[in-house]
């Protein structure tokens, strides 16, 4: 049982390591509220209509989206004084699937201390430390696995769709993000492409006993827009073994998400 001991020691070291950066005590606040996230998917400002070839991206590709499956994790609620609250009491990784409505609502378990928050951030995908194979054994999360030969762990996202190429042929894109590879002469270097998202205009106030619903919107067209114009004709249908494509996509991810406090509160 030496391993358990080692793990426990490492665990406590890691926990202590986090403690340094003055997190808000999240154990049993006297007064607290609750948060519920709802996930929305839009293209050009309107709710996503799947399976319909009607969108045009920045590169001019006519495209459709069939489904989107992704993880967000390490959600942090920031305060103006630099302190912050980590959402991690029951779940620190949340899975969203456009085909499974239940995944589009996340009732956060944590009791969140009431007060003013200056913003929300999260990791798109799963951070390098946590992204380990076999962490999820049950569907649907387990279906997100990323093959071990390609670095293992889990897909951050599968965004599957179709586009029309210059010969008017319909082609399929699997815009899949996860651990990238740089193939060297001897070794393969694995690149963790997860990134931090700081949601713009995400300040809010949480009152004691309040449950606040916060809409998080994925603005799909932004995956293909800036700083890199992402052209499916150039990158092709599959990118899991194409670190340049995944890097371009990850760089574009910084402004894909926005927040909507008015989405769902009565």
């Amino acid at each position: 049982m030496k391993n358990i001991f080692t793990t426990a020691v490492l665990l406590s070291i890691l926990i202590c390591a986090c403690k340094k950066e003055k997190p808000i005590d999240n154990n049993q606040p006297d007064t607290y509220g609750k948060i519920e996230f709802k996930f929305f998917h839009k293209v050009d400002g309107l709710p996503l209509v799947t399976d319909t070839l009607k969108y045009i991206n920045e590169a001019g590709n006519l495209y459709e989206v069939n489904e989107i499956q992704y993880f967000i994790s390490d959600v942090v609620l920031h305060r103006a004084d630099g302190s912050f609250y980590n959402i991690n009491q029951w779940q620190d990784i949340h899975y969203v699937d456009t085909d499974i409505p239940a995944t589009q609502t996340w009732n956060v378990f944590d009791k969140i201390p009431d007060g003013n928050y200056s913003g929300i951030s999260f990791t798109f995908g799963i951070n390098a430390q946590k992204n380990q194979s076999f962490m999820f054994v049950n569907p649907p999360e387990s279906f997100m696995f990323w093959p071990d030969v390609l670095g293992g762990g889990y897909h951050y996202m599968k965004l599957n769709g179709k586009w029309q190429d210059p010969q008017q042929q319909i082609r399929f894109f699997n815009f899949h993000l996860g651990i990238g590879q740089i193939y060297g002469a001897q070794d393969t270097i694995y690149v963790h492409n997860h990134f931090q998202v700081n949601l713009p205009n995400s300040a809010f106030t949480l009152a004691d006993k309040e449950t606040k619903t916060i809409g998080i919107i994925m603005n799909i067209e932004n995956w293909f827009k800036s700083p890199n114009i992402y052209d499916h004709n150039f990158w092709g249908g599959d990118i899991m073994e194409n670190q340049d494509a995944m890097q371009a996509a990850s760089e574009n991810g910084h402004d894909v998400f926005s927040v909507d406090f008015g989405c769902c509160n009565k």
Partner: peptide
């Protein structure tokens, strides 16, 4: 380092695979 790390309580289906 391949550390298997379970930060805190997670959903039940996040089984730690520690040995």
């Amino acid at each position: 380092m391949k550390l298997i790390f379970q930060p805190m309580k997670r959903k039940i289906n996040l089984i730690p695979i520690i040995l």
